[in-house]
Design a binder for these strands. Structure first.
Lengths: 221, 221
DNA sequence: CTACTTTTTACGGAAAACCGTAAGGAACTT
DNA sequence: AAGTTCCTTACGGTTTTCCGTAAAAAGTAG
């Protein structure tokens, strides 16, 4: 079984609970940290000392801190860890279960498991750890598995960028300008409009305000 | 010290951690539940059995569940508990630290403490429990105390209703219509516009989309 | 190369939002 | 009762969004 586990979680009561849980269920050395930067350092140090971690369990969102901190999200952390130690297994443990984000984590970062914090997450976490140790499969909290699959990839990065721009108060023509400068394929005001219409149809939004509200609720932006 | 504590928290790892913590630090009977409805039942039952709780620690947001459930938020639960047993002390323990909501909890529901889940929340929770047991003071996580005080009450319920209407895709004239039907003081399109301008100025928003995005981020709507 | 499809862009009119100004009323002062 | 202030409502002009149509460009197949 896994012998050296790193837990990255900023909320102390969760960290406390999960650590206790891991120690009770597995015969592994469990280290934990509340800071992403520190997590990456620990991973590096462990490699250097020839006693690398073989499992990382990390949250995705971290509260801001007074500390000087480079890495601010679990997503970034995962990317950097994979660069450092590509075969290190990673489980994301988060409340933020927005299909879009979860899909991204599996697709781009090749994480090994996603456990949604919730009423039944302890069992799931144990299951996930067992599964990814014994097999090459990935674990997804059952309540999410469906929505991940059905989540279409019709929404691309430019769509999200467009929504983000709208949400910070830019007008369509300003966004067109920005897109033109960034040399995106479609940058005309007309195309912005068209893209917007596609999104409004897709999310069944009455108008742009509604659209931004919906996508914000979904965690898309 | 408190002798009977009820913990209402749906995320199992937090519940697990906090329960362990409470048992280690206090000589109290600690009960816990993951459902608001069940929490209210437990409170009622304890009163009936003449062994009422003397402290409730509750989360504010709960994930949806398959269960038939009447109470869906911690806020509702707090209201109902206070109705049942007005002098029962209540601490909200939540990540949702939006000034507006926190202020509401203290002002309308007279909660005794608000501890923000975070890197230092275990200590704060202990402190809060000690404080509200020994004194009549309320506890607020230090990092929040400032923003609560400075949070103005210039924003009224109609403002929030207006924002909510916008966020579900209504036009200004539709909102005017609704306000007129509901006999709100100010319902003309002109007043809606004026109200909107006030809000945009207050939140430094470029346009309505921006405004809705900002207030959504703040948890105002 | 040409015909056809798809994508991107352009344009124009209608609707809604935006913004300044001012009229109409209610409450309050003296 | 007249004057003042504050709040609500009205209105007109400009900008932006909204929506349909169509031209231009790019890509595809024979």
């Amino acid at each position: 079984m896994f012998r050296k586990i790193l837990l990255v979680e900023d909320i102390d009561s969760i960290s406390y609970g999960v650590t206790a849980l891991l120690q009770r269920n597995f015969d592994a050395e469990v280290r934990s940290t509340k800071y992403c930067d520190e997590a990456l350092l620990k991973v590096k140090k462990a490699i250097f000392e020839k006693q690398p971690f073989d499992l990382v369990i990390t949250d995705l969102s971290f509260q801001e801190t007074h500390r000087e901190t480079k890495i601010t999200t679990g997503e970034e952390l995962i990317g950097l860890i994979k660069k450092e130690q590509p075969r290190l297994k990673i489980i994301a443990y988060s409340v933020d279960d927005k299909p879009h984000k979860v899909k991204l984590l599996f697709d781009t970062y090749k994480i090994n498991g996603f456990v949604a914090k919730g009423r039944d997450s302890i069992t799931q976490l144990i299951e996930a750890i067992d599964l990814i140790y014994h097999t090459a499969e990935v674990f997804i909290s059952p309540q999410l598995a469906g929505s991940i699959k059905e989540f279409s990839i019709e929404i691309d990065d430019d769509d999200i960028e467009l929504l983000r721009c709208l949400s910070i108060g830019m007008t369509q023509s300003e966004i067109s300008e920005i897109f033109r400068i960034q040399h995106k394929k479609t940058s005309s005001t007309s195309s912005i409009e068209k893209r917007l219409n596609k999104l409004k149809a897709y999310f069944k939004a009455n108008n742009t305000i509604h659209l931004v509200a919906i996508t914000k609720d979904m965690g898309l932006i």
